[in-house]
């Protein structure tokens, strides 16, 4: 039963993540007054990538990609999707956050094993900016977990039951802003896309990937996006009463992310760290201390 459920939810996440990417391309095109590719273009691209022959740079190059996708799928199973629990009763927020790090480690290992300095620089940037955005995000979560006396995502969702005014977005408005900003960092959206930076470091970690490796990474990114936006929806937008509402909320959040990302230009990597450790950090502390002292209504 668990196996079947996990396969189903993985397929859902992949399909929806790819849809979000196609959606992103369409919106971006409209913002730039282009017509843009059809919304299902991402599916075609991914299938095409898997069908192509390609090169490998060694065992860790293969292993890391598998580890990246595997870790992301494992994380997905611990996250509530609407009213679909899978395993989210037996994981907690820290398990989810740190399991995602396994995926990042796998991808980093694989990319650096390609022995291309562009990839190494890309990974360096990805890790550096992770030090930037993760901290304010975790500070907000400390306040949230302390106030609701639980670190289980399922219970944190349950604590927001009873309508819009109980959503953490309303209860912790500053925290929601911080979480939204750090989510852009997690997704590598525009002002924080230093590690991709096609014009500077030839797409960074991706530089040596092609064929099914690239396909695996796109699938990984799809699932990762689903998990990260899903976490935001669960923690700040009250989750979803059913899967449909959950997916709609994910789409809405991503839509705003794409719009914001499209009108901003890229930071340098140390600017990303400095930015996150300045305003989001201050807001995160204000929000967390506020809610820890005052509590929820």
């Amino acid at each position: 039963m668990l196996i079947v459920e996990s396969i189903l939810i993985t397929l859902l996440a992949i399909a929806y993540g790819l849809f979000l990417m196609g959606f992103d391309r369409k919106i971006t095109a409209r913002v730039q007054k282009r017509y843009g590719p059809p919304i299902w273009q991402q599916y075609i691209d991914t299938i095409k990538l898997f069908a192509k022959s390609t090169i490998s740079h060694g065992f860790i190059f293969d292993m890391g990609v598998i580890m990246a996708l595997g870790g992301t799928i494992a994380t997905l199973l611990f996250m509530p999707v609407g009213d679909w629990k899978v395993l989210s009763m037996s994981g907690d927020l820290f398990v989810v956050i740190y399991l995602l790090a396994v995926a990042l480690l796998g991808m980093a290992m694989s990319a650096v094993n390609s022995a291309n300095p562009n990839a190494s620089i890309g990974i360096m940037r990805a890790l550096t900016q992770m030090l930037g955005y993760e901290i304010p995000w975790l500070v907000v979560l400390v306040g949230m977990m302390y106030t609701f006396k639980t670190s289980s995502i399922w219970n944190l969702v349950g604590g927001q039951a009873g309508g819009f005014s109980n959503w953490n977005m309303v209860r912790m408005p500053l925290g929601a802003i911080v979480a939204f900003t750090t989510l852009m960092g997690q997704l590598g959206k525009k002002p924080f896309d230093t590690f991709i930076a096609p014009a500077e470091i030839a797409s960074g970690p991706m530089v040596e990937y092609g064929g099914k490796y690239m396909g695996m990474l796109i699938v990984q990114h799809a699932v990762g996006m689903f998990v990260e936006i899903g976490l935001f929806v669960n923690l700040f937008l009250g989750g979803g009463a059913n899967i449909g509402i959950f997916l709609l909320k994910v789409l809405a959040v991503y839509f705003v992310q794409v719009l914001v990302g499209n009108v901003l230009s890229r930071f340098r990597v140390e600017q990303v760290v400095r930015f996150h450790w300045k305003w989001p950090m201050v807001l995160a502390f204000v929000q967390s201390i506020w809610i820890m002292v005052v509590g929820v209504r």
Partner: peptide, 30 residues
């Protein structure tokens, strides 16, 4: 504030890797 299951996490991580491995080895050799 919460509980977690270390064996389950290990098992699920393994499950994820198996899924990814199947997807990886299903397609053309490189």
């Amino acid at each position: 504030f919460g509980a977690w299951d270390s064996v389950l996490v290990f098992f699920v991580f393994g499950l994820g890797v198996v899924f990814a491995g199947i997807l990886f080895y299903l397609f053309r050799k490189n």
